[in-house]
Design a binder for these strands. Structure first.
Lengths: 191, 191
DNA sequence: GTCTATAGGAGGATAGAC
DNA sequence: GTCTATCCTCCTATAGAC
């Protein structure tokens, strides 16, 4: 019962964060969207930052669940590609919260959230292992530092190219994903 | 005299926008940074949105000036690469204002600013011509729609990978630029 | 055009009854 | 735990004197 309510809250926060961003999202909006009073919201989450952190924890759990479904096959490169596809699909579906990297209050809340940090480290470790394996196989450019590759993959979750192409109205979501998959893995140059 | 003052204002706005983003930047900060009263600021620019727009116009003019310096040589691909390098250098130097794409008041202010829109169209046209030329030469992947390439280039101006790599403290600015140049043009895959 | 002072309002957070 | 009502801080914008 309490969990269901908090789930509904997180779902609203997730959608509003994806739609308007952290600073433009107001707690009043969240309360209205959930259909409860603002004061009730604050009984569940002590601050706006904690609301955002809860949304990030939720997304991180979904990511972990998705990673679990990927077969531990012989191709780490395919696994990385699958993760990027999934991430961009989430963003295009309006379910990827977008947080400002500058806001320090928010950063503190995230850093202090054990569930979030544990999830982030777990996901990063798993991706990191695949990155190194793919480089060892020669599928991924071995000259790139693994951390640069990791950040480049994470950045697909907040890539403005996705929303710009969507706004243009020229392509379907699947086409947009394939375009950005190409620029991400193959680059802009001809092969 | 008036122009010099407004130049100083724009410079402060530019830096603060790059540092804190639009929502976190306050007009009080701008006034304090310039060293004048807030009311004086509003004599020059009628709103916070207009301040941001003026900063964007300034950056757009710098971009146009940079494009002018590029030799109209036989290699449009080299010209595109030079532009991306320049853009990332500006961002790493903390001189690239970062604006939220969701804020509609701000969008309106930008769309209604003739100087900004003219600059944007001019830059887009020039880049677009180089993109098509590079594709005709076979240097740039001809299967990518030019608009997708254009957005991918523009996105380097707000790429979080740059700041993440900078925060890691592992690389110098020039190294970061070369890494992202590689992922942008060559992709993650081995060649 | 610069200042001091303040209006006006949005939004995060809380008090206190039920 | 939910509500109504309210507090209070911060921030954009303006009034009005010089």
């Amino acid at each position: 019962m309490l969990e269901a309510r908090e789930g509904a809250i997180i779902q609203s926060v997730n959608r509003l964060l994806a739609e308007k961003g952290f600073e433009s999202m107001t707690v009043d909006e969240v309360a209205a969207d959930v259909g409860i009073a603002k004061a009730s919201l604050y009984k569940h989450f002590p601050s706006k930052e904690d609301l955002a952190a809860a949304a990030m924890v939720s997304v991180m759990r979904r990511a972990q669940a998705f990673l679990d479904t990927l077969p531990a096959g012989p191709s780490p490169m395919e696994q990385l590609r699958a993760v990027v596809r999934w991430t961009m699909g989430l963003k295009l579906a309006g379910e990827m919260p977008s947080l400002p990297s500058q806001n320090s209050r928010l950063r503190s809340a995230l850093m202090g959230n054990k569930a979030y940090m544990d999830g982030l480290i777990d996901v990063s470790d798993r991706l990191g292992a695949w990155i190194e394996a793919a480089q060892a196989q020669g599928a991924l450019n071995p000259k790139l530092p693994p951390i640069a590759v990791l950040y480049t993959l994470y950045a697909r979750a907040c890539d403005p190219v996705l929303e710009f192409l969507k706004m243009s109205g020229l392509y379907r979501d699947e086409e947009i994903i394939e375009l950005v998959m190409t620029t991400c893995f193959d680059g802009l140059k001809s092969r």
